[in-house]
Simulated scan of single mutants.
Amino acid sequence: MTSGRHILLVEDESAIADLICTALEASDLRVTACAGVQPALETVELGPIALAIVDLSLPDGPPDRLIARLKAGGVPLIAISGDPAGLAALAPIPTLEKPFRIRALMDLVHTTLDGAAG
């Protein structure tokens, strides 16, 4: 069970962030939403994160430093973007191209969390 696991969501479009947060919280996951790279980096330093969902287009620049920090800490990651080339460059990280169905994201979240726990 994923009860209480902490998810970091890095998404600057508030409507998308709200939708994802609602779905994650309905699955009994704890979510910290950040609208940019810098607040997300600060959140990573605060404590354990079970999974990060990171948009590749953020107002304060590309999330390269954040992704490197998450990988170094062994944090599983899902990248989301409307840019298929940007997503392809991140392989083998799990990715979802916008627009996506929230069910597809939730399936990927649970698969990734289950894989990380095993």
Rank of each mutant, 00 (worst) to 15 (best):
Ile7Thr: 05
Leu9Cys: 15
Glu11Thr: 01
Asp12Glu: 03
Ser14Phe: 15
Ser14Ala: 15
Ile16Ala: 06
Ala17Ile: 06
Asp18Tyr: 14
Asp18Leu: 11
Asp18Glu: 01
Leu19Met: 11
Leu19Ala: 09
Ile20Gly: 12
Cys21Val: 15
Thr22Tyr: 07
Leu24Gly: 14
Leu24Ala: 12
Asp28Val: 13
Leu29Asn: 07
Ala33Glu: 08
Gly36Met: 08
Glu42Leu: 08
Glu42Lys: 03
Glu42Trp: 11
Glu45Gly: 10
Ala50Arg: 05
Ala52Tyr: 00
Ala52Glu: 11
Ser57Tyr: 05
Leu58Asn: 05
Leu58Pro: 01
Pro59Ala: 04
Asp60Ala: 04
Gly61Thr: 13
Asp64Ile: 11
Leu66Lys: 01
Leu66Gly: 02
Leu66Ser: 14
Ile67Trp: 15
Lys71Thr: 13
Ala72Val: 06
Gly73Glu: 01
Val75Cys: 07
Val75Asp: 14
Leu77Asn: 13
Ala79His: 14
Ile80Lys: 10
Gly82Pro: 13
Asp83Leu: 13
Ala85Arg: 13
Ala89Ser: 09
Leu90Trp: 09
Leu90Gln: 08
Thr95Val: 09
Thr95Leu: 12
Ile102Asn: 04
Ile102Gln: 06
Ile102Tyr: 04
Arg103Cys: 03
Arg103Asp: 00
Leu105Ala: 12
Leu108Gly: 01
Thr111Trp: 14
Thr112Gly: 05
Thr112Pro: 02
Leu113Val: 07
Leu113Glu: 10
Gly115Ile: 09
Gly118Phe: 10
Gly118His: 09
Gly118Ile: 03
